[in-house]
C-alpha cells in the first residue's frame, strides 16, 4: 500500500482502490464518504469511500472505528490494517487531490471552488463503486458545507439510493468513520513520504500539521519561500496563508485576469488592446495619435520602437 501511495504524487488526480468484495456485489450495501486534509496549506486532500453490506454494519461497529480526528496516528494505522484485513466484506477507494490540483482549480480563470471540487470528487467515487457493481442502497456523507443542498444534489444524482448528509457524520456512522480513517491514513502517508517534484535537494520535512496556525508549518513556509516561484507544488497557493506570505516576501506577479490591474493596464496601454480601436486620440502615446498601424501589426501585437 505504501508503495502505491509513493507513486501518487506524480499524478494530479490519483485513485487508490481495494478489491471489491464479492458480497458487496450481491447484497445491499451502505457507503460512507469522508475527506482528510481539507484545511492544511500543505499537501493533498484525500477523499475516501468505504462500503460494506448492510448486514455487516454491526461487525464494522465492533471494530471500534471512530472519527479519525479522535484517534492517534497509531490507532488509525491499526484500524486501517483491520479494515484491510476485513477485505471479504469491506471495500474502499481513495481519491487524492494533489495540492497542485487544488491550487490550479481554485485559482482558475473561472473559479472552481473547494466545495465544488469536493462534491465532484465524492460523486466520482460513488460512481466508481456503482460501476464496480456494488449494490448501493445507503450513502452517508460527512460535510463541512450546507448539508441540505448537498443531500439534494447527491439524491438527484443517485436516484434510488438513500442519501444522508450530516455534519460530524464521521462520528455518527461507522461506515463514515471507516472512510475517514482510510482518507486520513492516506493523507498522512502521502505527506510524510512527499517526494518534491522540484529539484530542491534535501528538504526539511518538519512541516508540522500543515495547518496554517501551526508554528512549525509557519516556519517551514518562511524557510521555503522562493522570491520568484513562491513555493514548491506541495503548498496550496490558493490558501490565504501562502498568498499573504508571497505578497509580502516574494516579487509581484501580474496576470491578465487580475481584475483591477488588468483594467488599469488596458486604459494605460490602450494601443495594445481592443480599446485602441475606439480611442485613437486619447492617451499620451504620440505614435498612436498620429498613426494607426495596419491590422497585420495590431493583430500580431507588433509595434515600432523608438528606443531599446
Amino acid at each position: 500500500f505504501t508503495a502505491v501511495l509513493l507513486a501518487v504524487r506524480f499524478y494530479a488526480l490519483c485513485r487508490l482502490v481495494s478489491e471489491i468484495p464479492e458480497v458487496c456485489k450481491t447484497e445491499d450495501c451502505c457507503l460512507g464518504i469522508d475527506e482528510a486534509g481539507r484545511g492544511p496549506v500543505l499537501g493533498p486532500m484525500v477523499y475516501g469511500i468505504c462500503f460494506c453490506p448492510l448486514s455487516k454494519k454491526e461487525e464494522l461497529k465492533d471494530m471500534k472505528v471512530a472519527d479519525s480526528k479522535t484517534l492517534t496516528e497509531a490507532e488509525r494505522e491499526n484500524l486501517f490494517e483491520k479494515l484491510v484485513e476485513a477485505k471479504s466484506y469491506v471495500g474502499w477507494a481513495l481519491q487524492i487531490l494533489s495540492p497542485n490540483t487544488i491550487s490550479t482549480c481554485m485559482l482558475r480563470r473561472t473559479k472552481y471552488n473547494l466545495n465544488a471540487l469536493s462534491h465532484d470528487t465524492a460523486i466520482d467515487l460513488v460512481q466508481y463503486a456503482l460501476d464496480s457493481g456494488v449494490q448501493l442502497k445507503e450513502i452517508y456523507v460527512d460535510t463541512v458545507g450546507p448539508a441540505d443542498k448537498y443531500e439534494v444534489k447527491l439524491s438527484q444524482r443517485f436516484p434510488g439510493i438513500q442519501v444522508t448528509v450530516r455534519p460530524k457524520a464521521d462520528s455518527l456512522f461507522p461506515v463514515v468513520s471507516a472512510a475517514s480513517i482510510c482518507a486520513k491514513v492516506a493523507r498522512d502517508r502521502v505527506v510524510k513520504g512527499w517526494n518534491f517534484a522540484e529539484d530542491l535537494g534535501e528538504v526539511d520535512t518538519d512541516y508540522g500539521s500543515g495547518y496554517p496556525n501551526d508554528p512549525k508549518t509557519k516556519a517551514w513556509l518562511l524557510k521555503y519561500l522562493d522570491p520568484v516561484f513562491g513555493y514548491p507544488q506541495f503548498v496550496r497557493f490558493s490558501w490565504s496563508t501562502a498568498q499573504t506570505l508571497m505578497d509580502s516576501k516574494a516579487v509581484n506577479v501580474h496576470w491578465d485576469d487580475d481584475e483591477e490591474d488588468g483594467e488599469k493596464a488596458a486604459q494605460r496601454q490602450n494601443n495594445k488592446s481592443m480599446l485602441s480601436y475606439f480611442s485613437v486620440s486619447s492617451g499620451g502615446n504620440n505614435q498612436n495619435a498620429t498613426h494607426q498601424a495596419h491590422r497585420f501589426f495590431t493583430e500580431r501585437r507588433l509595434k515600432s520602437l523608438n528606443t531599446l
Binding site: 491578465d256 495594445k272 501585437r301 515600432s304 520602437l305 523608438n306 531599446l308
Partner: peptide
C-alpha cells in the same frame, strides 16, 4: 517633421544592410 517621427532601425555589415526594429508587445 515632428518630435515623434523617430523610429528605431539597425544598420549592419558596415552600414550595408538596413533593418527595421519592431516589438511583439502583449500585456502581462
Amino acid at each position: 517633421p515632428k518630435a515623434d517621427a523617430a523610429s528605431l532601425y539597425m544598420l549592419g555589415c558596415g552600414d550595408v544592410m538596413l533593418y527595421e526594429v519592431k516589438a511583439f508587445e502583449d500585456d502581462f
